[in-house]
Amino acid sequence: MERWEGEQIAEWGVRNAEFAMQGRVRTLRIPHSALRILAALWRLNLAEELQYRANFVASVLGTLFWIGTALLTLALFFRHTTRLGGWDYWEVVVLLGVFNALTGVIEAVLRPGIGRLAGEVRSGGLDLVLAKPVDAQGFVSFRRLDVWRLTDFVLGLGLAGYALSRLGRVPGLLQLAAFVVALAAAGIVVYAIWVALMSLAFWFVSVENLSVLFDAVYEGARYPVTAYPGALRFVFVYLLPIAWTTTIPASALTGRLGPEIALAAAAVAALAFVLARLFWRAALRRYTGASG
């Protein structure tokens, strides 16, 4: 069985090399190929996922269960307090909705895409990616779309909207725009954290469960960053910037922070993206391949 795998990989390698030769010519002609490749990959994924409709039901049930446990946890905290880091109950629920929306993006795109990188660096499967005439970071990051997990995104935003109505606050247009920008920035920050963490795989080749590190860190984003003791707060704002992923968008939506925070969020996202890109480049230079 292992020999069969070896032959298969060798065959793929040859085919990919051929594809790469053709592709190089093609990319020169069509500058928008990246978007076309993305569209093609996601269309393929969609067709594949539509075969497994039971997964949709399982995904919705799973999301409802985990939202339920998160709400119960909050209820437990608020049995013993009226404010958490200065936020009242429904404000924290708005934040929880944002958290869940981002979880949807993570589970639908990042974990099945870049989350597999560590294993591929180890097995040498990354060779096949590098042989492709596309940007490796872009391809690795966005090659998959587990569409059912986007239910987390929808249900998360629904929860945030419901909590907002319970707060009795109707956000103005400017506030909504600030929220959309902050949420997009949050997505980019989360993405940058994934890229940076997964790039570690080039140094620590034997570590296949690097994504666990993300789960551990992201756990902290469930609550407003003001609830944590000073040292932890510093880490979450400046070092592992998860404060920017939930606390800031939720604050923009509830009006706790003015709309100008969106500009700061965009700047942080841009910085995080550039740093992650540089780190990825430096990491990739260490890669020598394993299957060749």
Binding site: N209, V212, L213, D215, A216
Partner: peptide, 8 residues
Amino acid sequence: LWIIWGVT
């Protein structure tokens, strides 16, 4: 990594 996860 599993220990870090268990501790957070």
